[in-house]
Simulated assay, not measured.
Amino acid sequence: MPSLDVSIVSEFLIRYGEKAYYVLKTALEISEEYKLSGKYFPGDFDSKGLIKKLRERGIRYNPTQLLRLMEREYGIIETTYKSATQHWWSFTNREAVTEALRIYEGGEEIILDPEVSVIDLQVKLLDLSRIIRILKALKSKLRLTDNDRRIIKDIIIHELPDIALVAKNAMKYGDRYKDFLAKFRLIIKIAEEVIIKMKLSSRLGIRGAEEHKDMRFELSNESV
């Protein structure tokens, strides 16, 4: 079974298809050419060399977006040098890239890491944006109703525990789930603020009821 690193590269190839394959394959070939030259380079491959090589093969699309995904979302490459005119990257695991390309080219079945596959599905299924919208709407209200309180309790007691378990597992994989984790942290922050608002609203309600009761008592005494 491929290691986790291989499975991540394989998933990138599956998700982005032919374009991803040619960009990754060409970048690897360039790195091998640079290595064989015996010269010093600030990384395994560079943007200029990659674009030039792709064009020599009749491939005209700009690889910038795929390179960004490879670095920020998949961790396949990392920037080793960047200036106004140059951008160099190195592979974080050359062996994993080579193996994933071999599997992809050979048409072998690619087995993704089971936990990653499950977390991917869970992240797609959980609608954190919906919860954020609800909590923000409740936070903006001047006073919370009994129904509002029921909604808050339902989210915190029934929905957040499951989301927290997914978030805990997602944290093992660095930036792969950074958007999901950012939304989760935002939910916790807003939920805490809404709970404070709910408690204040309850206290004000009790105080208002007591003041109303005292006023009725005073009016009753005056009438006597």
Rank of each mutant, 00 (worst) to 15 (best):
L112D: 03
G58V: 05
I157R: 11
M215V: 08
R55G: 05
I131T: 05
L101A: 07
I157V: 10
T98P: 10
R133C: 03
L54F: 08
K39D: 06
E218T: 10
G106N: 13
G75L: 08
E193G: 06
S47V: 12
S140Q: 13
A191N: 04
Y34A: 04
Y16V: 06
Y34H: 09
L67F: 04
A209S: 12
S201M: 06
I134V: 05
Y173D: 01
T26N: 01
K35N: 04
K153M: 15
V123G: 02
V97L: 04
I196D: 09
E108C: 07
F41C: 00
R149M: 11
L4A: 15
T26E: 03
R60T: 15
H158S: 14
K53H: 07
Y81T: 02
E56S: 12
K172R: 03
N169H: 10
S201Y: 05
T98C: 10
I134M: 00
N62C: 04
K153W: 09
K213D: 07
L125W: 12
I187Q: 02
D127H: 10
S37C: 00
I111P: 01
I14N: 14
R143M: 11
P161G: 02
K136P: 10
Y21K: 10
L50D: 00
A170P: 00
R68P: 13
I206E: 09
P42Y: 04
K189H: 15
R102G: 07
I134D: 03
K136N: 12
V224T: 14
A170H: 00
R102F: 06
Y34D: 01
G43H: 01
I163W: 03
E71T: 09
P114W: 00
E99G: 05
E159A: 10
